[in-house]
Design a protein around this nucleic acid. Structure first.
Length: 690
DNA sequence: TAGGGAATAAACAAAT
DNA sequence: CATTTGTTTATTCCCT
């Protein structure tokens, strides 16, 4: 295991230009997690591959150091044949604008809102982006924590194993690598936590232990370190010249620059304590005003030294300065920490650049779209609902009605790539939750739904659709058009960030809706019961009539029904035999093409549909036959039902009801293998607070 | 303001 | 025995 790690390090040493691997990897991790089909913990999967990635980071750090050395030499005129040809692709000095906050604070959001800078579409994107970034951060933290644990394990193993003289050198190198890696991870973690903390999204308990820094860099060349250090100390002056021109959007510049100084502090040179010019905009928030404060320092805050990994308590500013000069003087350790920090920043830059690009594309896309229909100012049903209903007050996580605790852990990783999820086969969700004036009640296109799916996955915004619509959607998306209650739950949590909290509330609502709506039919088989949807009935939108017996009673006789209608059984069997291979083929093709689940799962199948209709007709006749006396002749058991028992909601016998076809009942194979939703069962669904 | 639809809460029962 | 699942009723909120 150790040896493998070592060789991996070597083999990856040339993969420098692949600077994006870090952020990519984090996202891949997320995808892996979602794709997990059995409830394994993510920790079990973080193995050699992840290690390799982390080591790649370290390699990049080394490469950066080399690059810096080279530049240093060039500057000093020792060797500068073609300066212009040398692309500073890995130039460490970080532009101020690139150090974007990971998320947008409520204050910033408010500011944006007040300034009317953003259209609702942009707001939507913002929300999504914010949510996505929060998820990313949490995953990042989780991932690095795991990595850290693993590394420490390896370090211990190394210390035990590193006896043989032949391997000593290699072990020393590896140890250094591991330590650097560890340090880097710790700092990444810390940086993320800091970022969160600064923006009020995370309150770190006082008792929360700071991550201890490992001593490292025993094997560094002093001159190299000196040069590195010089480079680092001149970094922030270079920032001003390497300004970022990416920000073509008001949005991004606004968000970025407002908290750039605080971010910058993370790489600040301890000796360059004045960076007042970095505050491009007048600091709005308290935390930003320290630049002007005489006793403020980017590395000092809340009585604690903010040097990465330090957290030393300093009573006052003077003691902090003392501490700074004594503990964080120019030595190997500090230099290495700086280098690591540079690498951290670089990784963040890359990630940010990607996210920016994505944001840009999204906004461009939405902007183009929003200009098309002039009559509908908010073409996305999402936006109209958010802005017009009470959901507006729930649009920001801060104002969610039931959020006494910190945001729940993300269950759904951020999906990458703009078109991964976009599907043209998405079912129309159905009625939106609230009725709005007609001008806003524009038809919902599939594309909109697809887009909104992505949005709702990440943003804790209440979907504007009724529970019935969503339940129907969940069922229709399933390969067999049937789901157990738990699978419906899981669909909700998977597809909507909003439904990852207050589980008791919405789960109860789902159950109520399942019972209340005529369109939902409960079916039982040997594995338990599951729910199907009668789309015709759904369109009618009728409820089960109250005050009437409406449900099967256990122990009542269904044999009669079946006995009187042998064709029913026949159809059920044939449909069963038909559906299963069909869906198997679907599954196979899905797996083969790696198509996201609900792309194929949502494919309407005309064959199945007609089959269902036929069965509905059959069953309709059967039920009408047995229900002719308005008794509670609910389904019971038949010999065949020992295998496929079927329970059907009883249809009230109104004159109005009689004309409609009876609810669809299918008895398809309910194999757990086809239940993608069960992937989620082992995920810790956060059922916080009551 | 009335009426209707949807959400929410709660009580209860049966099944697991 | 606890939890899940399912049913039913009452209440509240929002929209027309």
């Amino acid at each position: 295991m150790m040896q493998e790690s070592g060789t991996e390090t070597k083999s990856n040493s040339s993969a420098i230009q692949n600077g994006s691997s870090g952020s990519n990897h984090l996202l891949e991790c997320g995808s892996l997690r979602e794709g997990r089909s059995n409830g394994e913990t993510p920790a079990g999967d973080i193995g050699a591959a992840d290690l390799a990635h982390a080591q790649q980071h370290q390699q990049q750090a080394l490469q950066v150091a080399r690059q810096l050395l080279l530049q240093q030499q060039q500057v000093s005129g020792l060797k500068s044949p073609k300066r212009n040809d040398k692309q500073p692709a890995l130039q460490v000095p970080v532009s101020v604008a690139m150090m974007t906050p990971q998320v947008i604070t409520p204050q910033q959001m408010q500011q944006i809102l007040q300034q009317q800078v953003l259209s609702p579409q942009q707001l939507q994107v913002l929300l999504q982006q914010q949510q996505a970034l929060m998820l990313q951060q949490q995953q990042l933290q989780e991932f690095y924590k795991k990595q850290q644990e693993q590394l420490q394990l390896q370090l211990i193993q190394q210390q035990h194993a590193g006896k043989q003289p032949k391997e000593q050198q290699q072990v020393a190198t590896q140890q250094l690598a591991f330590q650097q890696q560890l340090l880097q991870m710790q700092q990444l973690q810390q940086q993320h936590l800091l970022a969160l903390q600064r923006q009020g999204l995370l309150t770190i308990q006082p008792g929360q232990p700071a991550l201890p820094l490992q001593p490292l860099a025993q094997g560094m060349i002093p001159t190299e370190l000196q040069q590195l250090w010089k480079e680092v100390t001149s970094a922030h002056s270079a920032e001003e010249t390497t300004g970022n021109n990416h920000s073509s959007l008001d949005l991004t510049t606004t968000c970025v620059s407002s908290s750039a100084p605080s971010k910058t502090s993370l790489i600040m040179n301890p000796h360059a304590s004045t960076n007042g010019q970095l505050s491009v905009h007048p600091p709005k928030r308290e935390s930003l005003s320290h630049e002007e404060h005489p006793h403020s320092h980017p590395l000092y805050g809340h009585g604690v030294c903010k040097w990465p990994g330090c957290e030393a308590v300093c009573e006052d500013f003077q003691s902090f300065l003392k501490h700074l000069n004594s503990e964080h003087a120019l030595d190997d350790r500090s230099t290495a920490q700086c280098r690591v920090q540079m690498q951290v920043v670089q990784q963040l830059e890359l990630q940010l650049a990607k996210d920016k690009e994505r944001l840009q594309a999204m906004m461009t896309h939405l902007h183009v779209k929003s200009t098309e229909p002039k009559a509908a100012p908010q073409p996305l049903n999402l936006v109209s609902s958010v802005t017009l209903s009470k959901s507006a007050s729930e649009a920001s996580p801060q104002s969610l009605p039931h959020t006494p605790t910190t945001p729940t852990a993300p269950l759904t990783p951020v999906t990458q790539g703009p078109s991964v999820i976009t599907t043209t086969n998405m079912h129309t969700v159905g009625p939106i939750r609230r009725r709005y004036s007609d001008k806003y009640n524009v038809p919902i296109s599939s594309a909109d739904i697809a887009q909104n799916q992505e949005f709702y996955k990440n943003a804790e915004v209440r979907p504007p659709f009724t529970y019935a619509s969503l339940i129907r959607q969940a069922i229709l998306e399933s390969p067999e058009k049937q789901l157990t209650l738990n699978e419906i739950y899981n669909w909700f949590t998977r597809m909507f960030a909003y439904f990852r909290r207050n589980a008791a509330t919405w789960k109860g609502a789902i159950r109520t809706n399942l019972s209340l709506h005529k369109c939902f039919i409960r079916v039982e088989d040997e594995f338990g019961s599951f729910w199907t949807v009668d789309d015709e009935e759904f369109k009618r939108g009728r409820h089960i009539q109250r005050g009437r017996p409406r449900k099967y009673c256990p122990g009542e006789n269904f044999d009669e029904l079946v006995a009187n209608n042998p064709s029913l059984i026949k159809n059920m069997q044939s449909s069963h035999a038909y559906c299963t291979p069909l869906n198997a083929a679907l599954q196979a093709s899905m797996a083969e093409n790696s198509i996201p689940l609900y792309t194929t799962a949502s494919m309407g199948n005309p064959t199945l549909g007609s089959l269902a209709s036929a069965m509905r007709e059959e069953l309709n006749g059967a039920m009408e036959h047995t229900n002719s006396n308005e008794s509670d002749s609910s389904p019971g058991r038949s010999p065949l039902q020992a295998v496929h028992p079927v329970h059907v909601k009883e249809e009230p016998l109104d004159p109005e009801e009689a004309e409609g076809p009876l609810s669809l009942v299918t008895t398809a194979n309910h194999s757990p293998d086809f239940d993608h939703d069960r992937d989620y069962e082992d995920e810790p669904v956060n059922e916080d607070m009551e």
